[in-house]
Nucleic acid binder design. Structure first.
Lengths: 217, 217, 217, 217
DNA sequence: GATGAATGAGGATTCATTCAT
DNA sequence: CATGAATGAATCCTCATTCAT
């Protein structure tokens, strides 16, 4: 009945799609759904239907719902971390690295809204694997920031305990996350403004800290 | 911990318990479960069984699962906010208010582990009412902090836009939240140390900001 | 705390309401609810709340949901049948009795919308007692009509089997019911028009109707 | 009644049954249950069990309880209307069409007891979709009858308002329905007798009937 | 490689009805 | 007389996951 000479459009009937492509399509569909409705609000059925494949395919490729969710997380995580790493690399002048890192972060927030949602908004945090992933993401961000701070301290000849640097780095990452949420509620604000607010807040604080200033009650 | 002379364990058969009492018992049970397993990991069935009542009672008193969850949130929120408000009230010396507020916050984190979990760890953030609640909690914390900052700025004769104060306050709240998570992973750290790290980070940063210092790329 | 001299309005707190009054109030509330939402759509809870009494009162007075529903049916039935009986009584000229009966019927439909609904629209007909009630109502209407027909036949000296009269009477009652439904969908039609259509149809038959014959009171 | 050689009993374990077949089986089972116990008296669980499938299958195929009920209604409706249409088609002599239509109707009542029940006995009439369906069925029957009447009127050169025809057609349909119920209570009566009573009532009216006039096919 | 068919298990919610006071 | 407190029992529905073809 079907005339092979007049092939159906590729998004209607596709044969022999390479595994990597299929996988990516499915993951993108899933990420969009997770971002829109959250983990529990998304069903495997819907992922399959929207991906144009049958459900067993989704299982074949990702093993489970958790699997596909974590794949989405990993993808977004990779994008965020790589972008931050690049920003704070040696190619950036030392005194601009924090600023560059923050810019990378907020650029991700702005441009990869989906990825941001998957990473920070709906992790069913009580479930082992998800909580782990969330912690890991924050830790990796904190490491990027922590390295900056360590270098800075070293350059200033200050002695700061790694443990303290780690804690402060986490705090800074949390501040960034919170400011990103604030930004979502105030979308009229320019990205540069948001970046500068965070950087100033952090730089001046961290700077004084590194310089040895301390407040005690 | 429970004094049998004053309160029968909830798995004892008791009938005709006044509404207010039962309601509180049920809410406490629910809070513990939500904190332990998250919203989706907790079933109404279990809340009922552990409360020693039948499911219809739970519905009679809270209307729905969302209802009882939000009741738990409201309770914890009240505890946290009131405690922070008290700490930063006029009875505290101005230069110690931020410290007092942070202490109140981390004390809550330490002592009301359950409340903390319910408030910050498992809100199904994509669902309207839950997301609203989460935002509201952060906003209220930010307001407490923001008032401090405004007063401080005024005292220093500085002109800071309310919008900026609001954003920074949110960032600071986020920093506290992140530091609380860090603390969870490093439980050997003393509370006072955590408090001071956050306060120093914030105070020196905020202080410089309020003093008009600015970094630009 | 309450000052008996300043008694609460009677619809807020009422004491010692005579049984008959309470009963009637409750039945009226129930009838309204049944008419609006059907039997299954109405809950005992709602009947109690709207009646301003506790649920056990409703059970005390009517025994069960079925009980209160059947009480509503009985009340409406009484109204309808009595009104039809009156209309076709000896006080009405014989040749106007059918017309008078139909008028009584459609008047009931028009004025006791609630009663009509309870009687004809939501009987869960599969449940023994309800089906019985529905049949009884139709039978009683058919009896009223059947007596007319018998008298008429006798007057004309015709011999019609009671069984046939009964069947035709039921058909006529069904025709009336159907026309009442039609009327609901065409509320702009005058009651007299509806009555005359039914009466003419019954008296003359479709054939005569189409031939232009008409009976008028 | 079931021929084991052609159709395995539905309580035999069968897997991989094509959708269309399963769907039909499920609908038939459901129709039987609805007819026997009414809508509210039937549970999805029972439909599933008796169909030899699991509940999710029922939902997969019909979406909801309302869905499967309406599917039963549609099926029965189709049978009834098609049969009536066929009876009154041009292939039947004009003066016998009403009789043929009535015969089709009562044949349906007799032979498709289940369908009849689903169509006319337990629609939860207060619920939107069900009430709509019930109205639609009556309307469609009335249309079949109405067309007959219009043709008849035209042939006789009479001018009858469509609105009046519609109303009378509905009344006639209601008369048929009522007579069908009467028949249920008097199952010893022959179908032809019932048909003739209705047709005579409709064609001649009570008056002529009482006067002894009779139409016969 | 790919899918239509199928399900076990569980979850939220509602209701008619009855105690104990 | 009157009620607030309480429940057993269902019901509808959904979902992640797998088998048979």
């Amino acid at each position: 009945m079907r005339d092979p000479a007049h092939a159906a459009p590729i998004d209607t009937v596709r044969v022999r799609v390479p595994r990597a492509v299929r996988e990516r399509e499915m993951r993108d569909v899933a990420a969009a759904l997770f971002a829109e409705r959250g983990y529990h609000g998304t069903s495997m059925d819907e992922i399959a239907v929207r991906s144009g494949v049958s459900k067993p395919m989704v299982y074949e490729y990702f093993g489970s719902k958790e699997g596909i969710y974590l794949a989405c997380v990993a993808e977004a995580e990779k994008g965020l971390i790589e972008s931050m790493e690049r920003a704070v690399s040696a190619e950036t002048a030392p005194d601009r690295q924090l600023w560059a890192g923050a810019t990378a972060f907020f650029t991700f927030v702005e441009e990869q809204r989906e990825g941001w949602s998957v990473l920070f908004e709906e992790a069913p945090s009580k479930d082992g694997a998800f909580a782990e992933a969330a912690k890991r993401i924050r830790r990796r961000q904190a490491q990027v920031i922590g390295r900056l701070m360590s270098a800075s301290a070293e350059a200033a000849g200050a002695q700061i305990k790694p443990d303290e640097i780690d804690a402060i780095a986490h705090a800074l990452v949390g501040a960034g996350e919170a400011m990103a949420m604030w930004w979502r509620e105030h979308p009229e604000t320019e990205r540069d403004v948001v970046v500068l607010r965070l950087v100033n807040f952090a730089l001046l604080g961290v700077g004084s800290l590194l310089a040895g200033e301390r407040w005690t009650p």
